[in-house]
């Protein structure tokens, strides 16, 4: 493989894994932007979604791609539930309180699955999406490619929902200024409910797609959540295209750093660039809506 192919391969790897990060980050970004809540349990919702896909596969033989709509609907309601039973009480709480609440949720979800499913590593075997496309000496894993595609579709849908529907506009208004939105007759409580539902549904998609090429394990969320934080902050919270930009940027930095410098330090590059960006652009690349 000569250098051109190598660089191409690295770019492809970076974009593909970046798509995964972006898909994970977009739900986080939505909740973060509208409600100013950093969801520390985000990685655990991701894990739960992957587990749901796995359960559908192992008990009903449904491929993750087929059970995807089911998982999304389930997670929409899980999101509603989270808002209704937990986060509703914390709407005007300080940042720290919400961090602690979501962290507690994260412990409960993570170890709840741990208790029920035991710490075994599971992989969905022979999913519909498997293998790779090989173009000359470049390989493109199909599962990750489809994930990127679904990430883009999700983001387009979400973007148009926020931009062109009445509810979407209300969400954006709430994100901009909660009090003003309230005075304009927006039902803020309902908006929060929708936001949580959508945010968790997005992570449901991410988890379901992840289960096609990643192992399913009760503690898997931890590995993704930090990267998701970085993606969201890099793009600027509350912005949908910011999340995809952040995810892709981080994927590319990680792959370039890991391949050409040192794999052990690949996350150092990610977090290093991330801090530099924050220092010079304290609100990330794309601010709020």
């Amino acid at each position: 493989m000569d250098l051109v192919y190598l660089i191409l391969q690295v770019i492809i790897n970076g974009i593909l894994i970046g798509g995964v990060y972006a898909l994970i980050a977009v739900g986080l970004s939505l909740i973060w932007g509208v409600m100013e809540i950093v969801n520390f349990a985000h990685g655990d919702y991701l894990m739960a979604a992957a587990f749901f896909s796995f359960i559908f596969w192992s008990y009903m033989g449904l491929d993750p791609l087929i059970s995807l709509p089911l998982v999304v609907v389930i997670f929409l309601f899980i999101g509603f539930g989270t808002q209704k039973f937990v986060m509703k009480r914390l709407i005007d709480s300080p940042t720290l309180i919400t961090i602690a609440a979501t962290f507690a949720l994260s412990l409960i979800i993570r170890y709840g699955f741990f208790v029920v499913f035991k710490p075994d590593y599971r992989v969905i075997r022979d999913p519909l999406l498997q293998g790779s496309l090989h173009i000359s000496s470049i390989s493109i894993p199909i599962a990750k490619m489809v994930t990127l595609l679904i990430a883009i579709i999700t983001m387009i849908l979400l973007f148009s929902f926020l931009k062109y529907t009445k509810k979407g506009r209300a969400i954006r208004a709430t994100a901009q200024d909660r009090e003003v939105a309230k005075s304009l007759g927006v039902n803020v409580e309902q908006i929060f409910l929708i936001t949580w539902g959508l945010g968790i549904a997005c992570v449901g998609i991410a988890g379901a797609m992840l289960s096609t090429f990643y192992y399913v394990f009760p503690l898997m969320g931890v590995t993704f959540v930090l990267i998701a934080f970085a993606s969201v902050t890099l793009g600027g919270f509350g912005s949908v295209h910011g999340a995809i930009f952040g995810g892709l940027a981080i994927g590319l930095i990680q792959q370039f750093g890991g391949t050409f410098v040192s794999p052990a330090l690949k996350d150092v590059f990610v977090f290093g660039v991330f801090i530099l960006v924050l220092i010079f652009k304290p609100k990330g690349f794309f601010g709020k809506y």
């Binding site: 973060w32 100013e36 950093v38 940042t95 961090i99 930090l226 934080f229 970085a230 902050t233 919270f237 040192s262 052990a264 330090l265 996350d267 150092v268 977090f271 290093g272 991330f274 801090i275 924050l278 220092i279 304290p282 609100k283 990330g284």
Partner: peptide, 28 residues
């Protein structure tokens, strides 16, 4: 000096990133 001007969550996430960098550097 560099990151204390960041607001709320941004500061929190920046500190997480810095801590991870130091940890990874020490690990290697």
């Amino acid at each position: 000096f560099q990151i204390l001007h960041l607001k709320g969550h941004y500061f929190a996430v920046a500190t997480i990133a810095f801590a991870e960098i130091v940890k990874l550097l020490f690990l290697n």
